[in-house]
Amino acid sequence: MEKNNAPQVSATVPVMTIERFSELTGMSYSAIKGQLQLGNLPLFKIGRRRMVNIALLTAECLQSEEWS
């Protein structure tokens, strides 16, 4: 049986640090920060920390016309 090397993320993770999102997607930290600033990735602020809103991103992806 082949070993799955894909990163494992719990489906119940609603937000994720930019660093972790960078590791999992392969995008650079600066590219993600830029996409957050442009509003292309959903942002969730917890105090001073900025997190990628995985729950909203998932919902937007599932509702997109390209998915149907």
Rank of each mutant, 00 (worst) to 15 (best):
E66L: 11
P7W: 01
K45P: 11
G26F: 00
R50V: 03
L36Q: 07
M27P: 01
S64Y: 03
G26S: 02
F21I: 07
N40L: 05
Q8D: 07
R50W: 02
C61F: 11
E66P: 01
R50N: 07
T12K: 06
N40S: 08
L56S: 15
L56T: 13
I18Q: 12
G34R: 13
T58M: 12
A31I: 00
N4E: 08
R48H: 15
S22L: 07
V15N: 05
A11Y: 14
V52M: 07
L57T: 00
K33S: 15
Y29W: 08
S64L: 05
P14N: 08
A59C: 05
E2T: 04
L57P: 00
T17H: 04
S64K: 06
A11W: 11
V52W: 04
R50G: 05
S64M: 03
S64T: 03
A6Y: 04
P14F: 06
S30C: 09
F44K: 09
V15M: 04
Q35A: 13
L36S: 09
E65C: 12
I32N: 03
M1R: 06
P7N: 02
A59H: 15
N40Y: 03
L36T: 07
P14A: 09
L24T: 01
I46F: 13
R49Q: 06
E65Y: 11
R48P: 12
A55W: 08
I18R: 08
A6V: 02
A6T: 04
L38D: 13
R48D: 13
T58C: 12
T58F: 12
Y29F: 10
P7A: 00
G34K: 07
L38S: 08
Q63V: 04
R48Y: 14
R48T: 15
A6D: 09
C61G: 10
R48W: 14
N4F: 02
M16R: 01
Q35E: 10
G26D: 02
P7C: 00
I18W: 06
A59Q: 14
L38G: 09
S10D: 15
S64N: 08
W67T: 10
A59T: 11
E23S: 00
M1E: 05
T17F: 01
L38Q: 13
W67Q: 10
K45M: 13
T25Q: 05
E23Y: 01
P14T: 15
Q63A: 13
T12D: 14
L62D: 15
L62Q: 15
A59Y: 10
L38Y: 10
T12V: 07
G26V: 01
K3S: 07
S64E: 08
L62P: 05
S64D: 09
F44S: 11
N40V: 00
V13N: 03
N53P: 06
A55Q: 09
T17S: 12
T25L: 04
M51K: 09
I46S: 09
V13C: 03
E23I: 00
G34T: 09
N5G: 01
A11I: 08
A6Q: 10
T12Q: 13
P7F: 02
M51L: 12
E66N: 06
C61Q: 14
E66V: 07
S28G: 06
N53R: 10
L43E: 15
S68Q: 15
N5R: 06
I32H: 06
M27F: 06
Q35C: 11
L62H: 12
A6C: 00
G26W: 00
A6L: 05
M16Y: 00
E65D: 15
S28C: 00
E60Q: 13
N5C: 05
M16T: 01
Q8Y: 06
F21C: 08
M51F: 08
M16A: 00
